[in-house]
Design a protein around this nucleic acid. Structure first.
Length: 469
RNA sequence: GGCGACGUGGCGAAGUGGCCUAACGCGGGGGUCUGCAAAACCCUUAUUCAUCGGUUCGAAUCCGAUCGUCGCCUCCA
């Protein structure tokens, strides 16, 4: 069994063969922290999270680096508009990003490098490109990458460099470039803008070079996987490849993985058009972060995902199905021998789950396997076919698969004492066959998000998964 | 205009040459269980895969045309 991943550059599904056996190095283009990220951004970050979780599930060591772009035009503009420093603005939205990411159950990357903390690495890279003749300085002290010096330019995006000469954008550009297609590596200082004094002169880094410098600093000149949204294919990733390989002479990345857009109302979710939804707003409106996570990861990463009002209730119901199984298994008690057919059944489900994810992270197949497992286990519970030990085994099994998906309720979240009291009183009322009181308490708990269910194993409760409203 | 992705049930979505009279989730209908519920389970809900034509013993899956949707070519996950 090998993991195969669809590489944008070669256009084919490539088997994952880590440059260092057993250790996968992954770089994800993270957010520019000039404002809160929207759920479309998080779709691509959660796709990377799913990848990381699966690689680790498969026993691979993973080093995951996600950059934080904390210096760029929008941050400068935003800070100026608010009258605060760029560090303050970037710091605020970095914290906001991490809080949203945590809410969605995103794995913390091993390294979260900030551009402003990598100025020496960036200027070293620019200096190398100048030395090698791939970059040039303009009158104001800015440095540009010379696309004409890199014949492979355009391969990733499948764009014809010659056709890009059209030049309608020439006058829109603020800098005097030799060629309109050339892109900025280093921007000369301007009044009111932050600037660093460096060996290549004063100024600030261009966007693309930041990612090349940070990825190579933390992962080496060649690494295994680079992820991002499709809208980064051109020019961002195209430029990264050109400048990185021109500087090192080595292949930059083994596999480029690009996540399709999240759509809302049939169109790409984008800050510029304003059709966005944000994590914190949805959560404040009562949406379960787990339901939101499910909605954002349940579709294959390379397929566009249309987000609608109906997405969340469906996702919440699916997540709740897993919760209900875990609750049933947790309360299950049966003094009988182990179910002899259980191990083989679980093995088959695991095999299907892995086969799906091995195939370029086909999460639909993996979820189908998970839910096949849910039904199978529910059947065995209904039939009282499991031993108490089997139920514990089944729980561990579901938890193991969920370590990849991250959608199930965390175990043993203690109930608030007041609610616990209601649960206890409800159990007592029911034991006394006081139906009126037990039903009243059940309704009250339900209104407060706690479902109480009576089973052969006794009364059990479960926190409901909400979808907002 | 150039390049690319895609169109499967009420909704979302797998499947890319025979195991497909089409997985899985949501939703709908009926039933079992239950003090009543809920959860769960069972049955049911596409003889059909945008349309038309072709290749093939055989196509949702390959080829062509048509219609439609979206993205990139500029900041963008």
């Amino acid at each position: 069994m090998t993991i195969r991943l669809q590489d944008t550059l070669s256009g084919e599904a490539r088997p994952l063969e880590p440059l260092e056996p057993g250790h996968v190095r992954v770089y994800t283009c993270g957010p520019t922290v000039y404002g809160p990220a929207h759920i479309g951004n998080f779709r691509s970050f959660l796709f990377a999270d799913l990848l990381i979780r699966y690689l680790r599930y498969r026993g691979l060591r993973v080093t995951w680096v996600m950059n934080l772009t904390d210096i760029d035009d929008k941050i400068i503009r935003g800070a100026a508009a608010e009258g605060v420093s760029i560090a303050e603005l970037a710091g605020r939205y970095t914290a906001r990003f991490l809080a949203d990411a945590d809410a969605l159950g995103m794995t913390r990357p091993d390294v979260l490098p900030r551009a402003t903390e990598h100025i020496p690495q960036i200027t070293d890279l620019v200096a190398t490109l100048l030395d090698r003749g791939h970059a040039y300085r303009t009158e104001d002290g800015s440095v540009f990458f010379r696309i004409a010096s890199w014949p492979a330019y355009g391969r990733l995006a499948r764009l014809d460099p010659e056709a890009m000469r059209v030049g309608e954008r020439v006058e829109a550009d603020e800098y005097a470039k030799d060629d309109v297609r050339d892109f900025a590596l280093w921007k000369a200082p301007k009044p009111g803008e932050p600037s660093w004094d460096t060996p290549i002169g004063p100024g600030r880094p261009g966007w693309h070079i930041e990612c090349s410098a940070m990825s190579m600093t933390h992962l080496g000149p060649s690494f295994d996987i680079h992820t991002g949204g499709v809208d980064l294919v051109f020019p961002h990733h195209e430029d990264e490849i050109a400048q990185s390989e021109a500087a090192t002479g080595l292949p930059f990345v083994h596999a480029w993985l690009h996540c399709a857009h999240l759509r809302m109302g049939g169109e790409k979710m984008a800050k510029s058009t304003g059709n966005i939804a944000r994590v914190a707003d949805l959560v404040a409106a009562g949406v379960s972060p787990r339901a939101l996570r499910y909605a954002l990861i349940a579709v294959h990463y390379r397929a566009p995902l249309n987000y609608t009002e109906d997405s969340l209730p469906a996702a919440a119901a699916a997540v709740e199905r897993v919760d209900a199984l875990l609750a049933a298994l947790a309360g299950y008690r049966e003094g009988r021998p182990d179910d002899p057919t259980l191990p083989a059944a679980l093995d088959a489900i695991r095999a299907a789950f892995e086969a799906g994810l091995d195939d370029d992270l086909n999460v639909s197949e993996a979820l189908a396997a998970l839910f096949d497992g849910v039904r199978d286990l529910n059947r065995r519970i209904d039939a009282r076919a499991l031993s108490t030990a089997d139920a514990a085994r089944a729980t561990a099994f579901i938890r193991e698969l969920d370590a990849v998906l991250g959608i199930a309720a965390p175990e043993a979240d203690a109930l608030d004492p007041e609610l616990q009291d209601l649960v206890d009183r409800r159990a007592a009322a029911r034991a006394a066959r006081d139906w009126a009181e037990s039903d009243r308490l059940r309704d009250e708990l339900l209104a407060r998000g706690i479902a109480v269910e009576d089973t052969r194993d006794g009364q059990r409760w479960r926190a409901l998964v909400t979808s907002g409203g």
